[in-house]
Design a binder for these strands. Structure first.
Lengths: 189, 189
DNA sequence: TCAGCCATGTAATGGGTTACATGATTGA
DNA sequence: TCAATCATGTAACCCATTACATGGCTGA
C-alpha cells in the first residue's frame, strides 16, 4: 500500500478551543485568585465529583493558560511557607470559558462500571456480585455526601450548583435502585 | 530548586495490566473471530454505548495484542473485497481479560454534561436551557434505542447484557426526570 | 453515476497518568 | 516525634483523537 505525504492543513482556528479540563480550571478561578495548590483543594470538594485533573497536569496547564492570555500570574513570596504563584482569570479567559462551556458535549460518556458489568460472564463467579455490591455501597456513601452539601446550598443564590446537585442525586439514587434490583436478579438465578 | 535524576524503577509487573479499551476489544473477541472492521461494527451496537475507541486506535492496538500473545491473527485473502486480517482470542487473552475486568473501577467518572451545568452561570442566558433540552431529547432517544434492544434480549441467556441494559435504562430515565424538573425550576425563576 | 460499504492503515499532536523529588512548618 | 500540610514541579510514558490516504465493488 502506498501513501502520499499528508498535506499539512493547520485548521485555521477562529478562536482557540479549550478543553474541559481547562474549563474546569477557569471555572474555579472565576471564584477568585488561587494558587495551583488552592485549586486542587477547591476541585476536590466541588467539580471533583465529575472532573479530576491530575496534580501534574494542573501545574503544567497553568503557565500555558497564562501564555495564552487567559490567566494572569502573580508571584507571592512568603516567610514561613514556600513561595507561591497566584492565578487570576482575565476577560479573555472568561470569554474562552464561555465558549468552551457552550460547545456540545460528546454523545457517549465512557462508563467503566457498565463496561465491566457487560462482560461479567468472563469474570470469576462471585466477582460480579462483589462489583455490584461495591457499586451500591460507594453510591450510597456518595449520596450521603451530596445530601450533606445540599444542606449548605441556597437554590436561589447558587442555582446551577443546585441543579448539578439534583442531577447527581438523581443519578446516584438510580444507581442504588438498580444495584438492589440486580442483586435480587442474581439471587433468583 | 534542585532535582536529582529520577531512579528508573520499571515496576516489576506480575501480569501485564490491560486497559479498559483492551478489555472491550478482547471482550468482543470472546464472541468469535473478527477483523478490525467487524469489531468496529460490533462495538457500535453494543459496548459502544459506554466505550468507543477510535478507529485508528483499534487498528494500532490489534497487532500489539498479537505481540503480547493475547490474540492470534490470521490473514484471509479475498477476490471481490480487500484482504483482511481476522483476530481470535487466546487462552492468555481470556486470562488477561478476566484480570482486567476484575480490577476496581476508578472512583470518579468524568461527566462533561455535569461540568458544563455546574458552570452554567458563565454561559450566555438561554444556553443552559438549550443544554438541558438537548440532554432531555438525546436521553429520550437513547431510551427508545434501549427499549428496542430489550425486546430482542433473553434475560436468562444473556444475564449480564440484560443487567447492563437495566442499568442504562435506569440512568437514562433518571436523566430525563431530572431534566424536566430542572426546566421547571428554570421557568419559576 | 455516485454514494456508501469493505478493509486497512499513517502522521502528528494532544491529553492525561504515575512515579519521583524537595523541604520547611505545624499540630497531635 | 511523626504525620500532615504547604507549595511546586520534572520525567517518562501511554492513551486517544483528528485528519489524511487508498481503491475496488455494489446497489439505488
Amino acid at each position: 500500500m502506498r501513501y502520499d505525504s499528508p498535506i499539512r492543513t493547520k485548521p485555521a482556528q477562529t478562536t482557540e478551543q479549550i478543553t474541559l479540563t481547562e474549563c474546569a480550571v477557569l471555572g474555579v478561578l472565576t471564584q477568585g485568585e488561587h494558587s495551583g495548590y488552592d485549586l486542587l483543594k477547591r476541585i476536590e470538594g466541588g467539580v471533583g465529583f465529575f472532573w479530576t485533573p491530575a496534580k501534574s497536569q494542573l501545574y503544567a496547564l497553568l503557565p500555558k493558560l497564562v501564555e495564552r492570555g487567559l490567566l494572569k500570574a502573580r508571584r507571592v513570596e512568603q516567610q514561613k511557607r514556600p513561595d507561591k504563584t497566584l492565578y487570576r482569570i482575565t476577560p479573555a479567559g472568561r470569554r474562552a470559558l464561555r465558549e468552551g462551556l457552550e460547545q456540545p458535549s460528546p454523545a457517549v460518556d465512557r462508563n467503566a462500571f457498565e463496561l465491566r458489568l457487560f462482560f461479567g460472564e468472563h469474570m470469576r463467579p462471585g466477582a460480579v456480585r462483589k462489583l455490584i455490591e461495591a457499586r451500591r455501597d460507594s453510591q450510597a456513601a456518595h449520596l450521603a455526601v451530596l445530601e450533606e452539601i445540599e444542606r449548605d446550598l441556597d437554590p436561589t443564590e447558587q442555582l446551577y450548583e443546585y441543579l448539578t446537585l439534583l442531577a447527581g442525586k438523581e443519578n446516584t439514587q438510580a444507581a442504588i435502585r438498580w444495584a438492589e434490583q440486580a442483586l435480587e436478579l442474581l439471587d433468583r438465578k
